[in-house]
Nucleic acid binder design. Structure first.
Length: 135
DNA sequence: GCCAACGTTGGC
DNA sequence: GCCAACGTTGGC
């Protein structure tokens, strides 16, 4: 299994929105590297849901429930999206500030490349973050 | 194929 | 609101 981190501005699409829907298309990603990561996602992979802009914290765990397929919001046919479902909200949201200050997470892709909206997370990083989240 | 100008993302 | 870090576009 692989692990990922996916960012969304809660204004546009929040953890609560996903919980309401139970299953959502992770659409609107228009960056080639982020797209490549989504193409690599397999059913059953886990992804951290991160609130960018407002909150700046990891708020929940998702599961990839459908692998890459054409993004329904894209008319050019060039971009793909995956579908995700909520697994659970984390007991303690993990702040960006906390992750930045943690030596165990210094090499995280999302720390090193802050603008990337979909990034891989190693198993060690994933487990470490779950620890910080009270799991 | 290079690079300047511009647009966007996202943290501060 | 600002700015750094990218990504994209278009002239040459």
């Amino acid at each position: 299994m692989n692990y990922w981190l996916m960012k969304s501005e809660p204004d546009a699409f929040s953890w609560d929105d996903l919980v309401k829907q139970q299953k959502g298309e992770w659409d609107g990603v228009r960056n080639h590297l982020a797209q490549r990561h989504m193409k690599a996602m397999k059913k059953g992979d886990r992804a951290l849901f991160y609130h960018s802009n407002i909150g700046l914290e990891v708020v929940g765990i998702m599961e990839i429930v459908e692998e890459a397929a054409p993004d329904s919001t894209d008319e050019t046919g060039r971009w793909i999206a995956v579908h995700v479902s909520p697994v659970q909200r984390v007991p303690v949201p993990v702040k960006l500030k906390t992750m930045k200050a943690d030596p165990a997470l210094a090499n995280m892709v999302m720390i090193r490349q802050s603008r990337l909206s979909v990034s891989p997370v190693t198993e060690a990083e994933y487990k470490h973050i779950l620890g910080l989240a009270g799991l």
